[in-house]
Design a protein around this nucleic acid. Structure first.
Lengths: 141, 141
DNA sequence: TGCTAAATGAGAATCATTATCCTTTAAAAC
DNA sequence: GTTTTAAAGGATAATGATTCTCATTTAGCA
């Protein structure tokens, strides 16, 4: 079913279903913490040792263009990817590479209402993303 | 006096005042649209033809480390810089490289109040930045 | 089952950024 | 004003993520 679902996502977008595309979509879905291309390659090569770096980058572009994944901006020069297309925000840890998802419908409603009332002149908002930057408190176990 | 102000910023941080650092800080202040390193180099070389690319990158790091400028995240692989340290948000145009500043104290208060009430478990927020993504409406002149 | 445009793979190329290492300089001490 | 010296700058090589090229393979339709 899992494989079937991933296949569906590709066919729904009119994309050819290839083992490489399946593997990459699956990798991004399974890997937590918003993987980089390198993370994805490492993960895939366990079961798919011959996949080419170029293919991974090309497939990532295709998936982004077809709105099956999103790019996640970081301050570093490596791009990271996100399989969750539902609107959500990100929590950035300021002393590690950790990036957590943040879902909050109340907040989204608050923002939508706010920008409904207060338009930005000559600008049509398509999406609003919060970057919540801070630190996880030390876990005292 | 402009030069004096820039000089002050450096000395306040205990940094040596060099012509290169002055020029780079001035460039970021003057250039609009959140310049990249390349934009900065082009601008500076008009008056300062011998500055080295390496110097520009090193100075940018120093300025970021000393909180005189900020990095601006983009979806591209070029880093951009911002001389405005006052808390503000960014408007990203989804079909150009334009990045506009967005100041809104009411919005900031709204967000502060919201996250005051609704804490994120085990997380201390240091900063919240909105990425407002959309399109500028065609100007009918 | 064959056809064909699209996808993949291998490796070269690109390009923003960083590192190296030698020379120059800011600024504190004299 | 000189001297001193750690810090800063310059030239250029190196790095590393990403992209390009082009020959080979393949998905999916006829």
């Amino acid at each position: 079913m899992k494989a079937g679902l991933i296949k569906n996502k590709l066919t729904e977008k009119g994309l050819k279903v290839t083992p490489q595309r399946m593997a990459i979509l699956e990798a991004i879905t399974n890997l937590k913490n918003h993987p980089s291309a390198e993370n994805i390659i490492d993960y895939i090569r366990r079961n798919h040792p011959n996949i080419s770096v170029a293919t991974v980058y090309k497939v990532l572009d295709v998936l982004v263009d077809n709105q099956l994944i999103k790019r996640v901006k970081t301050e570093k020069d490596v791009m990271r990817y996100d399989a969750i297309m539902e609107s959500h925000h990100h929590i950035y840890c300021s002393d590690s590479d950790q990036i957590e998802d943040f879902f909050d419908d109340n907040l989204n409603k608050l923002l939508d209402d706010y920008f409904e009332k207060k338009q930005i002149p000559d600008f049509k908002i398509e999406d609003i993303k919060l970057h919540i930057i801070g630190k996880y408190k030390k876990q005292i176990i």
